[in-house]
Design a binder for these strands. Structure first.
Length: 111
DNA sequence: GGCTTGACTAATG
DNA sequence: TCATTAGCCAAGC
Protein backbone atom coordinates (compact mmCIF):
# COMPACT_ATOMS: atom_id res chain seq x y z
CA UNK A 1 0.00 0.00 0.00
CA UNK A 2 1.43 3.30 -1.07
CA UNK A 3 1.91 6.43 0.92
CA UNK A 4 -0.91 8.21 -0.85
CA UNK A 5 -3.40 5.38 -0.26
CA UNK A 6 -2.71 5.61 3.48
CA UNK A 7 -3.19 9.35 3.39
CA UNK A 8 -6.58 8.92 1.75
CA UNK A 9 -7.62 6.17 4.19
CA UNK A 10 -6.84 8.45 7.13
CA UNK A 11 -8.49 11.55 5.70
CA UNK A 12 -11.68 9.61 5.10
CA UNK A 13 -12.00 9.13 8.86
CA UNK A 14 -12.51 12.82 9.47
CA UNK A 15 -16.21 13.55 10.06
CA UNK A 16 -18.11 16.58 8.78
CA UNK A 17 -17.46 19.73 10.72
CA UNK A 18 -14.08 18.57 12.03
CA UNK A 19 -10.55 19.16 10.72
CA UNK A 20 -7.04 17.72 10.98
CA UNK A 21 -3.61 19.08 10.11
CA UNK A 22 -1.14 17.71 7.55
CA UNK A 23 1.09 16.79 10.47
CA UNK A 24 -1.72 14.84 12.13
CA UNK A 25 -2.30 12.80 9.00
CA UNK A 26 1.43 12.18 8.60
CA UNK A 27 1.69 10.97 12.20
CA UNK A 28 -1.33 8.68 11.78
CA UNK A 29 0.27 6.85 8.86
CA UNK A 30 3.56 6.41 10.66
CA UNK A 31 5.62 9.24 9.18
CA UNK A 32 5.38 12.14 11.68
CA UNK A 33 7.81 14.28 9.64
CA UNK A 34 6.10 13.77 6.29
CA UNK A 35 3.53 16.57 6.48
CA UNK A 36 4.71 17.97 3.15
CA UNK A 37 4.17 14.65 1.46
CA UNK A 38 0.62 14.60 2.80
CA UNK A 39 0.01 17.89 1.05
CA UNK A 40 1.64 16.49 -2.03
CA UNK A 41 -0.60 13.40 -1.90
CA UNK A 42 -3.71 15.55 -1.65
CA UNK A 43 -2.54 17.72 -4.56
CA UNK A 44 -2.46 14.57 -6.68
CA UNK A 45 -5.84 13.43 -5.38
CA UNK A 46 -8.40 12.17 -7.87
CA UNK A 47 -10.74 10.29 -5.51
CA UNK A 48 -13.94 12.30 -4.85
CA UNK A 49 -14.77 10.30 -1.71
CA UNK A 50 -11.86 11.85 0.18
CA UNK A 51 -12.83 14.97 2.20
CA UNK A 52 -9.60 16.78 1.39
CA UNK A 53 -11.05 20.10 2.51
CA UNK A 54 -10.84 19.00 6.15
CA UNK A 55 -7.05 18.93 6.02
CA UNK A 56 -5.51 22.28 6.95
CA UNK A 57 -2.14 23.40 8.28
CA UNK A 58 -0.96 23.48 11.90
CA UNK A 59 -1.90 27.14 12.24
CA UNK A 60 -5.56 26.50 11.54
CA UNK A 61 -5.33 28.14 8.13
CA UNK A 62 -5.91 27.08 4.54
CA UNK A 63 -2.76 26.31 2.61
CA UNK A 64 -3.51 28.17 -0.59
CA UNK A 65 -1.07 26.60 -3.01
CA UNK A 66 -2.07 24.38 -5.87
CA UNK A 67 -4.92 25.25 -8.21
CA UNK A 68 -6.02 28.85 -8.30
CA UNK A 69 -9.21 29.28 -6.28
CA UNK A 70 -8.82 26.00 -4.46
CA UNK A 71 -8.27 27.71 -1.12
CA UNK A 72 -11.47 29.73 -1.46
CA UNK A 73 -13.45 26.60 -2.30
CA UNK A 74 -11.94 24.78 0.65
CA UNK A 75 -12.96 27.47 3.10
CA UNK A 76 -16.49 27.59 1.66
CA UNK A 77 -16.87 23.83 2.01
CA UNK A 78 -15.70 23.95 5.61
CA UNK A 79 -18.01 26.83 6.47
CA UNK A 80 -20.89 24.80 5.03
CA UNK A 81 -19.98 21.98 7.40
CA UNK A 82 -20.02 24.32 10.37
CA UNK A 83 -16.33 25.14 10.69
CA UNK A 84 -15.99 28.78 11.67
CA UNK A 85 -13.25 31.07 10.39
CA UNK A 86 -12.28 34.43 11.86
CA UNK A 87 -11.38 37.59 9.96
CA UNK A 88 -7.81 36.40 9.52
CA UNK A 89 -8.93 33.18 7.85
CA UNK A 90 -8.18 31.01 10.84
CA UNK A 91 -10.37 28.41 12.53
CA UNK A 92 -10.42 27.10 16.08
CA UNK A 93 -8.05 24.19 15.61
CA UNK A 94 -8.00 23.44 19.31
CA UNK A 95 -11.75 22.75 19.32
CA UNK A 96 -12.28 21.27 15.85
CA UNK A 97 -9.21 19.08 15.45
CA UNK A 98 -10.22 15.42 15.10
CA UNK A 99 -8.18 12.67 16.86
CA UNK A 100 -6.97 10.32 14.09
CA UNK A 101 -6.24 6.61 14.35
CA UNK A 102 -3.74 4.74 12.16
CA UNK A 103 -5.38 3.28 9.02
CA UNK A 104 -4.32 -0.23 10.07
CA UNK A 105 -6.97 -0.16 12.78
CA UNK A 106 -9.70 0.58 10.33
CA UNK A 107 -9.06 -2.05 7.69
CA UNK A 108 -8.04 -0.16 4.59
CA UNK A 109 -7.86 -3.19 2.36
CA UNK A 110 -9.91 -1.31 -0.21
CA UNK A 111 -6.58 -0.14 -1.58
C1' DG B 1 20.74 6.13 -7.49
C1' DG B 2 21.12 11.36 -7.30
C1' DC B 3 18.55 15.82 -7.69
C1' DT B 4 14.68 18.81 -7.52
C1' DT B 5 10.13 20.00 -6.02
C1' DG B 6 6.77 21.13 -2.63
C1' DA B 7 -1.55 21.73 -0.08
C1' DC B 8 4.35 21.47 5.96
C1' DT B 9 6.32 22.48 10.73
C1' DA B 10 8.74 24.37 14.56
C1' DA B 11 11.94 27.72 15.95
C1' DT B 12 13.63 32.41 15.80
C1' DG B 13 13.77 37.56 15.42
C1' DT C 1 1.57 38.42 14.20
C1' DC C 2 4.42 38.25 10.22
C1' DA C 3 8.84 36.81 7.70
C1' DT C 4 12.65 33.83 7.39
C1' DT C 5 15.21 29.30 7.92
C1' DA C 6 16.39 24.71 8.24
C1' DG C 7 14.76 19.98 8.30
C1' DC C 8 11.65 16.70 6.39
C1' DC C 9 10.63 12.75 2.81
C1' DA C 10 7.61 10.69 -1.33
C1' DA C 11 7.55 11.23 -6.39
C1' DG C 12 9.16 12.03 -10.87
C1' DC C 13 13.06 12.65 -14.02
Amino acid sequence: MGFRARVYAVVRQVPEGRVVTYGDVAAAIGSPRAARQVGWALAALSDPTVPWQRVINAQGRISGRGEVGRAVLQEQLLVQEGVGFDDSGRCDLKALRYPLQPPELYGDDAF
